[in-house]
Design a binder for these strands. Structure first.
Lengths: 225, 225
DNA sequence: GGATCGACTGAACGTGCGTTTAGGATGATG
DNA sequence: CATCATCCTAAACGCACGTTCAGTCGATCC
């Protein structure tokens, strides 16, 4: 993937890689062009020369990541992003910066982050549909929403990786951490959490007893936009 | 909770509320003291006069939120934060700013965000332990990690609420959105996702067949920090 | 050999930031 | 009435930022 050592790469590539690391670790606003230039061993002016502006540099980083995550699908079957991300998680010492940058894209709401999220959601929905079709997965009363929620759940450890590292005590770079997350999630996705369906039944009954898209409470709207 | 209209509150309170709105909506770095001052109808100097610095203002906002979320527990039983947050979600026109600010705290990694996360995690773990004890919830091979993952899952819609709003088309302020999220999550937490336990069994067998905390792949460590 | 072009830099520019300073207005206190 | 503290502001300070500018260097082309 990255074939050339950073010192030998072109200056533009070095700048972009340094930016991915900094943006991913500290966020866009907290990172200065001067910092990135110093990391890449060039002058701040060269950053602007190559990318037009700091925002242009961010766009270039976004596109690098989108390409990296999206075009891997030639290798594998349908779930391109999910598969690539699993590879990344297995080799954090190499791709950790990309993971950080992806999480930053999502929480800072960049346009590339939106594209990746949409793609990830579509892949998830397809996977679920296929699973339901061939009987390996449970059907849902609201498949679209279920796909959204499962996608969100999958991204949560990425977005809250600092909290995860903090309460876990070990760096997320250790494969042990990723591994330990697997079993509880699989338990949840296999047997669920509740021992019986009383709560689900109660909610289902409540939802059927009223207008499907209307709130049950009285409309006491007020306040600003 | 907020008994006085903002125009009549003291200037310090007005500044703090304006800061919570701005910080929650745009993040700490993207918000200037001048913006907050303008929102509160005061001079930028007064912000510093009351809170010492921009960082001090952030701390004050953090503490306001922590207090608001933590001390509600007198009202209810054990799960204080979770209960309060559900109230907030039910009245977004009033507490939407708090929700946004809480999400910002978590993703920007403030110290108050850590405290709230720890508290939320502890509440979740307790709830799970009690559920397992009285038989309403499934046991887990790794209860601590399961509590973490379930806490992360619960926070995901908060952190990715922009994506959620985007793909859903409706503002998260509508109770319909919160309501529609409930059913798929309850389905998942009741019946799981997989129709049988083949994947779980396979992973369990794989995990038992090796050293419990060691990675299966060959150690090809390299690269920077 | 001169012209041309892209990569690249040092120095500077202008702007917006957080913060400081000096002081005005107001109300309580002797 | 004088004093004093509190709340508050206008103006400015210093700094770091993104960006611009003028020009150097080295390779390529005629």
């Amino acid at each position: 993937m990255r074939s050339v050592p950073l010192e030998d790469a072109t200056a533009a590539a070095r700048i972009r890689e340094a930016a991915i690391v900094r943006f991913g670790r500290q966020g866009y606003e907290r990172t200065s062009v001067r910092e990135i230039a110093a990391d890449a061993g060039v002058s701040p002016a060269l950053v602007i020369h190559h990318f037009g502006s700091k925002e242009g540099l961010r766009t270039a980083c976004d596109e690098t990541l989108v390409r990296e995550l999206m075009t891997e699908k030639a290798k594998t079957r349908a779930p391109a992003i999910a598969e690539t991300m699993r590879e990344w998680l297995d080799r954090p010492e190499r791709f950790g910066a990309y993971i950080d940058y992806f999480a930053t894209m999502l929480s800072e709401g960049s346009e590339g982050g939106n594209r990746l999220f949409d793609r990830l959601l579509r892949e998830t929905a397809t996977m679920l549909d296929e699973g339901v079709a061939d009987g390996t997965m449970q059907p849902s009363a609201d498949p679209e929403m279920r796909a959204i929620m499962i996608t969100l759940n999958g991204l949560a450890p990425l977005l809250l990786r600092d909290q995860l590292v903090r309460v876990l005590g070990v760096p997320l770079s250790s494969p042990a951490a990723v591994q330990r997350m697997t079993l509880p999630i699989l338990e949840l996705y296999t047997h669920g959490l509740y021992a019986d369906s009383r709560i689900l039944d109660a909610v289902r009954a409540a939802l059927e007893g009223e207008s499907p898209t209307q709130a049950p409470t009285s409309p006491d709207s007020e306040g600003p936009a």
